[in-house]
Amino acid sequence: MKMNVEVDCTPEEARRFLGLPDLSPVHDAYVKSLLDTMQKGPSPELLESMVKSWAPMGDAGFKMWTQMFEQMSKGAGKG
């Protein structure tokens, strides 16, 4: 026997029914932080941590990324 059940509810209603936590405040805080960073520009510390996570070559890779970002920032100021 095959049975189909169709439930018409919003994602919020489904979340509550299944007992899942409401992560809206966490999501809102993350989006606000991301927007603030985008508007103010990334800090040097943030860029450094991002580049270190991208650079599999260790120190040599980090220096390459640093030089690339410095060249890009110098070129952006000439507009």
Rank of each mutant, 00 (worst) to 15 (best):
Q67L: 01
L23T: 10
G61A: 07
M50D: 09
G61M: 02
D36W: 00
P44K: 13
L35H: 08
D36T: 08
V26F: 12
S33M: 11
A60I: 10
E70V: 06
K52W: 04
P44L: 15
S24Y: 02
F69D: 04
K40E: 15
V31W: 00
K40G: 12
G58V: 01
P44F: 11
A29G: 02
E70A: 04
W65L: 06
D22Q: 01
Q39S: 13
S43F: 01
G61I: 04
S43R: 10
A60F: 08
G61P: 00
P44W: 10
H27V: 13
V26P: 00
E48R: 09
K52G: 14
A60S: 06
E45H: 10
L23Y: 02
W54Q: 11
V31A: 07
L34W: 05
V26Q: 09
P42A: 15
P42H: 04
V51D: 14
F69L: 07
V26H: 04
P25E: 01
A29S: 02
S49K: 15
L47M: 14
V26C: 04
W54R: 11
H27W: 12
L47K: 12
K40Q: 15
V51Y: 06
T37A: 15
L47N: 11
S49L: 14
L46W: 07
Y30L: 13
L35A: 09
V51W: 08
W65G: 12
K63E: 06
F62W: 10
F62Q: 13
S33L: 13
L47I: 09
K32N: 10
E70K: 05
D28T: 08
M57Q: 09
G58A: 03
T37R: 15
D22M: 07
P25Y: 04
T66L: 15
S53N: 14
L35N: 05
L47P: 03
K63P: 05
S43E: 14
S43W: 02
P25I: 10
K40A: 15
K63M: 10
M50N: 12
P25T: 06
D22S: 07
M64R: 13
L47W: 09
D28A: 11
G41Y: 06
P42M: 14
K32F: 11
D59I: 01
M64P: 02
L47C: 12
E48M: 09
P21T: 09
A60C: 03
K32I: 04
Q67S: 10
E70C: 01
P42E: 11
G41N: 04
S33D: 11
M38C: 07
M50P: 00
